[in-house]
């Protein structure tokens, strides 16, 4: 079934649209910060590094648009797949060959991974491009590289092991993307309209963002380099486990399929 899921996602225009949007969001900031009119001497002194040029740490410009679009990009890739299957009746064909529990389990995991991958794709691509433009020198607090401070996520790690820091950020956003995609999937068991399913994670994301104080808001914790607090753990726990339990229990109980 995993193979079938992969084949389906690889021919979905919405998935490729999300990837293309990710490419634009990643490439444009890299072009804008690309070093120009510099000689080799520039790199002998203490130049800008790939870490501080990463658009996640800049937090402005196209990154703002990326942060706005993350819930949509994560869910548009595959979150409406169950609604589509149920509406077209394709689910009946699948369930003649696969156990219902396995179907929902595989669908949940695959959707989670695809949502996460689509969410982190612009971040990884942008970092790779910045690596092509700037050297990977150690971050130094006193050379204009103080982008991560006490109120931000893991400042110690950023200055001591910057690569590990990048991995932690990517992992967190992967979990965020996966969680939002899973929310979309969970909503598809309640709402028939597949287009509404796609936008519900965005509405939840926006409502949480506006209602919760900025330091604990979902976008500050995951996307704007905020310090990790109980809110982040709560979002992930409720979003991932809640949607998982909902999908498995509700999907399994759903006899009308």
């Amino acid at each position: 079934m995993l193979e079938m899921e992969w084949k389906r996602v690889s021919i979905r225009p919405a998935f490729w649209l999300a990837i293309v949007a990710g490419v634009v969001l990643a490439v444009v900031p890299a072009i804008l910060t690309w070093p120009q009119h510099v000689t080799e001497d520039y790199y002998y002194t203490y130049p800008r590094s790939a870490f501080i040029s990463w658009f996640y740490l800049e937090g402005a410009g196209l990154y703002y648009i990326y942060a706005l679009l993350v819930p949509l990009l994560a869910s548009i890739a595959f979150a409406d797949s169950h609604a589509e299957d149920a509406n077209t009746g394709f689910i009946k064909n699948i369930l003649t060959k696969v156990e219902k529990k396995k179907y929902f389990l595989v669908r949940y995991v695959f959707n989670f991974v695809i949502g996460g991958v689509v969410a982190v794709f612009p971040l990884i691509l942008n970092f790779l491009l910045e690596m092509a433009a700037y050297p990977l020198i150690e971050n130094n607090y006193y050379f204009g590289m103080n982008l991560v401070q006490d109120g931000n996520l893991l400042p110690g790690l950023f200055y001591e092991r910057p690569f590990a820091y990048v991995l932690v950020v990517v992992l967190l956003i992967f979990l965020l993307g996966g969680m939002l995609a899973s929310l979309g999937l969970a909503f598809s068991l309640l709402v028939k309209n597949r287009y509404i399913v796609l936008i519900l994670p965005l509405l939840v994301f926006m409502a949480l963002d506006v209602l919760v104080p900025f330091s604990h808001s979902i976008s500050a914790v995951f996307l704007y380099n905020g310090s990790w607090n109980f809110a982040g753990t709560t979002y992930l726990a409720v979003g991932i486990f809640g949607s998982f339990i909902w999908c498995i229990v509700q999907g399994y109980k759903h006899e009308t399929i």
């Binding site: 919405a14 196209l62 648009i65 679009l69 949509l72 548009i76 287009y195 509404i196 796609l198 936008i199």
Partner: peptide, 21 residues
């Protein structure tokens, strides 16, 4: 047809407007 794409376009326009790019 897909409103998620319309959302992406309008939110991107709104974001682009605010960033001053």
């Amino acid at each position: 047809k897909n409103i998620a794409i319309i959302f992406i376009i309008l939110l991107a326009m709104s974001g682009l407007d605010r960033t001053g790019m």
